[in-house]
Design a protein around this nucleic acid. Structure first.
Lengths: 181, 181
DNA sequence: CTTCTGAGTTCGATCTACGAACCTAGATGA
DNA sequence: TCATCTAGGTTCGTAGATCGAACTCAGAAG
């Protein structure tokens, strides 16, 4: 079965001031969902959606790997950080390994697993949105460039046939639980 | 000033079982951050990082716009949903507009603003990660395709010179607060 | 033997989330 | 006229999460 529900259709009329839609936009229908929708977005948020989780991953991505350094860079309370790190290790996003510098005692550090590394587009997408909509007067606090050519990096939708998708209206949803109005 | 810190370097040695790094990977240095790092990721998470926020945006993206329908689809407690919707409206991600169906009373609905629509890559990146790492036995609960050609849609890093970036090691960080170890 | 440091724990005070029940105004029906 | 239904919230008491500050503990250095 296939519900081909156009994502993000019908944004007409979103201009005026005392915002009032003049045309009926939402057909009346009983809710078909008796359970909350389960989707990969929800599942992913169970892993990385808690407060501090993505900031921790941001730091580890930057190469900040020790507890105290992650704590300082994120500002997370230590007890919460302990819990988040343990959760991310349990989820397979980070791994906790010992390391020893010459002439120093054994310490712990946290590293991204391959699965953790694949969260990079999530961070990039958030950063891109924040840069665009929440940056201060002096522009984005940091910029990211392609090491090969020096050009700025961004994330974008593409299809597997190689088309770049500029507008979310070009994306269709196939299968999955019904969309209710 | 430019710190050109390679993102995601040094993943060597992340293979063995009783995970122990044999080489020193983290040069000892005092933390240079006296304040938590401010970046666009953190700023974006202040807007969409609370529990339920992104699921609400997911639903509105699907065209689910009424309070009760969003509540049913996300499973968020009503009081929390009220607060999230108000926060997202305040942040300029959603707008709350009245609409009237023929012969029916006035109702409210929530719509994405242009800024809200630009969160689509965040949702897609989360979905993609969840599909890859958390999908159940029967595969992803929903799939998304390019309306033009029918091919599956994904998000990826590209640079503005047009290169597709397959590996996060190809991304450099320029400027911004120092990375501490 | 004392101090230092990294990596957490513990603690009491908030803060937030939770589910269930309740409220209100417009439409509908008897 | 009166009761009922519905959409879109509020209210409430409880339970769990978060906060910052202080404390702990083990290994290394002096």
């Amino acid at each position: 079965m296939t519900w081909n529900t156009s994502v993000d259709q019908a944004e007409r009329g979103s201009a005026g001031a005392p915002t009032t839609a003049t045309a009926p936009t939402t057909p009346t229908a009983p809710s078909l969902l008796t359970q909350p929708r389960v989707c990969s977005v929800a599942r992913a948020l169970e892993v990385v959606g808690e407060r501090w989780s993505l900031l921790v991953i941001r730091e580890v991505t930057f190469g900040v790997r020790r507890f105290d350094a992650i704590q300082a860079a994120t500002g997370a309370p230590r007890a919460v950080l302990t819990e988040r790190l343990a959760g991310l290790v349990r989820a397979g996003v980070l791994e906790r390994v010992t390391y020893r510098e010459a002439g120093s005692r054994t310490r712990w550090e946290y590293r991204l697993t391959p699965a953790g590394r694949e969260l990079a587009p999530v961070l990039s997408a958030l950063r891109q949105w924040g840069d665009r909509h929440l940056a201060g007067e002096d522009g984005p606090p940091a910029t990211f460039t392609h090491a090969g050519c020096g050009a700025p990096v961004r994330v974008q939708h593409v299809c597997e046939a190689g088309h770049v998708i500029e507008n979310t209206r070009e994306i269709s949803r196939k299968a999955g639980p019904p969309v209710t109005s």
